[in-house]
Nucleic acid binder design. Structure first.
Lengths: 236, 236
DNA sequence: TCAAAAGTGTTACAACTACACCCATGG
DNA sequence: CCATGGGTGTAGTTGTAACACTTTTGA
C-alpha cells in the first residue's frame, strides 16, 4: 500500500481568502466556527484535500460550498506548514485567494455556514495562522493588482469607470486622480463601452463598460501601472 | 493518535530548482537518479518533509545536502499536486527556487549526488512534473528579477557591473544598453564601489562593487525596471 | 437653478531610449 | 600603438502627474 516506506504523511487543507467588493469597500468572507476547537471564533473557509483531488480542486470545492460560485478567479498563495499551526493535529494548509463579485454569491449558503463579510480594516481575530494568511493575501492582492488587471474580477460584468476607481482607491487606501485614471484605463484597450448608463449613483449617469475578453487574456501580463510608486504599498 | 479521523494523509516533498551563474550562463543544478523508478533520468533535488519540519526547513535541508550552502536566497514557488504526478505513490511537492553563487557550492557534495549543472536551454528531460516546475521557476525568476534586486544573489560578494549586466542579458536573452544599464543600476543606491578592479576579463579592468546591505532590504520592494517592457518576458 | 458627479484637455516635468565618444591598459 | 572592453554625457522622445473647466440632470 505505502510504497515509500518510513515516511511521514500529513493532513492537507485548502483555505480560501475570499475577497469581495460591495461598491464602496473591499471585504473578506469569514465563517463563524460552530464546533470545537476554537468554537465561536472566526476563521477562513477551508477543507481537507481529498484522496483523488488536486489542491486546486479542493480550493474550488471549498469556495463553491460556501458561495455557490464556480469558475472564480483564484490563485495559490502559499503553503503554511508550521508544525504547531493546528493544535488538534499537524495539518499543512495551502492558502488560496479568490476574487468574487459579491453580488453573485448565494446568500443561503453563506448563511448555512454562518459566514459574514467583514471590511478589511475591521477584521476580527482569526484562528490558527489565518491572520497571517490574510495579511499575505492582502499584500499579494495589492502587488498583483498594481501590475495586472485582476480587479475586474471583483466587479459585475457591467461596471462603470468610477466604480472601478473606487475599487482601486479602496485597495490602495488612497485617492487617485480621476482624469489620469480613466485615461490610463481606456488606453489599455481592455474595455468596451456599452450604450447604457448607470444612473443610481449620480444624476448625470456613468457609462457602463465591459471587459474585452480577447484582449484581457493577451494583455494580462502587461503592466498597467495605475498606482504611482506601487512599491510603497508592498511593505506589508 | 489521529484526531481528524477519516481524512486522507499525504506524502509531502520539497523539490528545489537551483539556479547558478558561472559568469557567462545561467545554469540549473540537476541530479542523476541512481535508483528506480526512473533510474538514470535527471531530476530536481528533493526530499520528503519530515515529521517536525516546516516545508521551508525541508527545502533548506535538501539544498544544504546537495550544495553545503546555508542561508541561501530561496522562495516557495508552488505546490504541485496532481494525483498521478508520482507513479510510485501519491506525493505532493512544494517547489522552491533558490539562487546561489555557483562558486561557493561544495563540489564533493554535488559529486556524491551525481549532480551536474545544465544550461537553461540545454536541459534534459526531467522526471515526473519537474519540467513543469522548472518552466514555472524560470518564469518566476524573470518576473521577480524585473521588479526586485534578486539577481545579486547569484553573484559573489564582490562583482562588477559588466558581470551583472551579463547576468541580466542571460536571463532575458537580450542585449541591454551598457550606458543605460549602469546608470539605472547606480541610481538605485544599492551598490558600493570598491577600490579594487577585476582585471581578468578586460585590459582596463572593471571596478568591483558590493551590495549595500542596509539599503538592500529597504529597497527590495522598489521597482528597478531594468528591463524595458518586462511583460514580453512573462508570456511563458 | 443649483448641487453633484461624469467626462475631457493642456502643460510642465521626469524618465527612458538611443546614440557617440573618451579612457585605461596589456600585449 | 592599437585592440579591447570600461566608463560617461547628451539630446529627443515618451510617459506621467498636476491641474481647471464644461456637461448632464434630478431634485
Amino acid at each position: 500500500m505505502h510504497k515509500y516506506t518510513g515516511q511521514e504523511r500529513f493532513l492537507l487543507a485548502a483555505d480560501c481568502i475570499i475577497f469581495g467588493f460591495d461598491g464602496a469597500n473591499i471585504k473578506l468572507l469569514l465563517i463563524h466556527r460552530g464546533l470545537e476547537p476554537m468554537k465561536d471564533h472566526w476563521s477562513l473557509m477551508g477543507g481537507f484535500v481529498q484522496k483523488n483531488e488536486t489542491p486546486d480542486e479542493a480550493a474550488n470545492r471549498v469556495l463553491e460550498d460556501l458561495t455557490g460560485l464556480k469558475n472564480v478567479y483564484m490563485e495559490q498563495l502559499h503553503v503554511f506548514g508550521a508544525p504547531d499551526r493546528d493544535p488538534v493535529e499537524r495539518t499543512l494548509s495551502i492558502a488560496y485567494f479568490a476574487l468574487i463579485d459579491i453580488h453573485k454569491y448565494e446568500k443561503q449558503l453563506t448563511h448555512e455556514h454562518h459566514a459574514e463579510w467583514f471590511e478589511l480594516n475591521e477584521l476580527p481575530e482569526l484562528i490558527f495562522d489565518h491572520n497571517e494568511m490574510v495579511k499575505m493575501a492582502k499584500k499579494q492582492l495589492r502587488y498583483k493588482a498594481a501590475l495586472h488587471p485582476i480587479l475586474f474580477q471583483l466587479l459585475p460584468e457591467k461596471f462603470t469607470i468610477p466604480q472601478l476607481q473606487a475599487l482601486y482607491e479602496g485597495i490602495y487606501q488612497s485617492k487617485l486622480d480621476d482624469r489620469n485614471f480613466s485615461r490610463k484605463l481606456l488606453s489599455t484597450g481592455l474595455l468596451i463601452k456599452l450604450p447604457e448608463k448607470e444612473k443610481l449613483s449620480s444624476k448625470k449617469g456613468a457609462f457602463y463598460y465591459k471587459l474585452d475578453q480577447s484582449n484581457y487574456l493577451e494583455n494580462f501580463e502587461a503592466f498597467l501601472n495605475f498606482i504611482p510608486n506601487p512599491d510603497r504599498f508592498f511593505k506589508d
